[in-house]
């Protein structure tokens, strides 16, 4: 019996060990190392000097940091009021077969989510360039061939093309999430509602939406978690420009670290980005937990 327990433990270590070790070494150790570096002035070479919280103080008094945070907030907002509701609506339409050719629409909506960020960035870089596709189409429509698209050059509007691209690209993910969850709804319940004479609007409002609330909440968590983490599209499309107007925190981190060789400062930004997303996810999941508890109580 003791032997069996020991051999169980050995097999457990052998089977689960490699995944845990490689994951821990690559993800956890560098993050901890970076936490240490964030308290130094390391420039990529030489001996780092301990500088306490200087990097953090400098960051929080840098307007570019706050502007990046503002743009990250807009990215979250596009998910919450754009991608998620739109993804839900599209999924509902397909699920209830309110239109024909649902297979075709399903494919079209999902496809952009699979495209590579580099490709999307190159394509939409040309679409939204001052003399790009949009400019040319407006120019032809208004009979002004020299039309140049400059409305996205101002501080407040520079991020808008990126937000449009995000809406285009990632609505499909939420669409797929909702579609998969809608397909779990029991057909009997819908059938009963239809027999009782419920209108499509009532089915949507009283049956489907309440049922999907947990999915809305998890989607919101994905949206928040994802929004801070990816910046490669923006990197290629605008590189944060003009000036820093379309910057997000991820780009701010890259620029400081690799263009200005401020590794300590860059590490501090990385830590703030990680803490920020963990913090927001914790808040959202506690809201989600409370919501689903209330929902269950309400249902009984």
């Amino acid at each position: 019996m003791v032997l069996a327990a020991r051999s169980n433990r050995a097999s457990y270590a052998l089977l689960a060990g490699p995944a845990i070790v490689i994951y821990g070494l690559v993800i956890v150790v560098p993050v901890l190392y970076s936490l240490v570096l964030s308290f130094t002035d390391w420039a990529g070479m030489g001996v780092p000097n301990f500088v306490g919280f200087t990097n953090y103080v400098v960051m929080f008094s840098d307007p570019i940091f706050w502007w990046g945070l503002r743009n990250n907030g807009l990215v979250v907002l596009v998910s919450l009021i754009g991608q998620i509701p739109l993804g839900f609506f599209l999924a509902y339409v397909i699920y209830r077969r309110l239109v024909r050719h649902s297979g075709f629409f399903e494919a079209v909506i999902f496809f952009p989510a699979l495209m590579s960020p580099v490709v999307v960035a190159l394509l939409f870089g040309v679409v939204f360039a001052p003399s790009g596709l949009v400019a040319e189409m407006i120019g032809r429509a208004t009979g002004n061939p020299m039309f140049s698209l400059t409305i996205f050059n101002t501080k407040n509007t520079a991020i808008i093309p990126y937000l449009i691209v995000l809406l285009w690209m990632y609505t499909g993910i939420y669409f797929i999430i909702f579609l998969a969850n809608l397909q779990k709804t029991s057909p009997e319940m819908l059938e009963a509602a239809v027999l009782d004479g419920a209108s499509e609007w009532n089915i949507l409002k009283s049956l489907i939406v309440p049922q999907q609330i947990p999915v809305f909440l998890t989607s919101a968590i994905y949206a928040v978690a994802g929004s801070l983490k990816s910046f490669e599209i923006l990197w290629i499309m605008t590189n944060g420009g003009p000036s820093y107007y379309s910057n997000v925190l991820g780009l701010y981190m890259i620029q400081n670290t690799f263009s200005f060789y401020k590794y300590g400062f860059g590490s501090a930004i990385a830590i703030v980005v990680i803490l920020l997303s963990v913090f927001m996810i914790l808040i959202l999941s506690s809201i989600a937990a409370r919501f689903s508890r209330r929902f269950e109580q309400g249902a009984t």
């Binding site: 821990g24 190392y33 990385a270 990680i274």
Partner: peptide
């Protein structure tokens, strides 16, 4: 313990940890 340890990895991406990764 291990399962939630690995689950934390869902919260980070290569992009968000590129600075520590590059340094390492």
């Amino acid at each position: 313990l291990w399962f939630s340890f690995i689950g934390l990895g869902l919260l980070v991406t290569i992009s968000s940890s590129i600075v520590p990764l590059f340094i390492a």
